[in-house]
Design a protein around this nucleic acid. Structure first.
Length: 233
DNA sequence: GACCAGGCACATC
DNA sequence: GATGTGCATGGT
């Protein structure tokens, strides 16, 4: 699939439109400076903690980990899972996420001896497959780690991406994760910085105007097709 | 009090 | 393959 699906005609729209959307969002919201937080390892941890959770809650959990002096691979790896769960409690689903962090850390130590510098030599698609093999790391989390922690040109698709693109009719109803990712990756230059900013802008725009219960006043993209049933997204 | 937030795995049909 | 459910805190 290359280009943008037009539900009115069933045709694929021009790739340039995807850059136009980016430019409109950038003009409205400006640079987002993602990922919030410091360092590749912290970004990886944040990517797991932020699953289906408000970022503000994740920040509290990260602050707890920092205060406890364990925001590093070795410390987290040897920490008791129940102690870890207690520290990340503010992020929600804390038992689940503690187990997921453990799984990730086991992977990190099994493959790289806990040294994230050693990841650099791995091919991106192989790395993605390996990350997806870790229980608790799905597509969005894997891609967030690849893009924001490891600077790989992978487009991150999330709820906001699907909601915004869906409501404006740029993706087919029911389009799955890989279809949406492929749309962006095949239509845009494989540019890490662009992918970084684009995804962050979609999240920003989603929070701003594209709520689950639609209220599209002052929507920055309203000059674009906008006649899709928003409830479906 | 209801709704929402930068998912994922698993059960069931 | 599609759909439903559990997981949980904290802000609006």
């Amino acid at each position: 699939m290359a280009g943008i699906y037009d539900p009115k005609t069933g045709n694929i729209m021009s790739n340039e439109q995807l850059m136009e959307i980016y430019q409109k969002l950038y003009k409205r919201y400006g640079p987002q400076h993602w990922w919030p937080g410091e360092g590749a390892f912290e970004i990886m941890i944040g990517a797991i903690l932020t699953q289906n959770t408000n970022w503000g809650n994740v920040e509290k959990a990260i602050a707890n980990l920092r205060s406890a002096g364990c925001m590093d691979p070795a410390s987290l790896h040897r920490m008791d899972v129940s102690a870890l769960a207690e520290l990340i409690r503010p992020a929600g689903y804390y038992n689940l996420k503690a187990a997921r962090l453990r799984n990730f850390l086991s992977w990190l130590f099994d493959n790289f001896d806990g040294d994230i510098e050693r990841i650099a030599g791995w091919d991106t698609s192989l790395l993605r497959q390996e990350l997806l093999g870790v229980k608790g790391i799905g597509k969005e989390t894997a891609d967030s780690i690849l893009l924001y922690a490891l600077d790989r040109p992978v487009f991150v698709v999330d709820t906001y991406t699907c909601r915004i693109m869906g409501r404006h009719g740029f993706i087919e109803p029911g389009a799955d994760y890989e279809q949406v990712r492929d749309l962006f990756e095949s239509s845009l230059p494989m540019d890490t910085e662009l992918f970084n900013e684009y995804h962050a802008l979609l999240v920003c725009a989603g929070k701003d105007y594209c709520k689950p219960k639609p209220k599209c006043d002052d929507c920055p993209l309203c000059s674009l097709p906008h006649d899709i049933d928003p409830i479906a997204y």
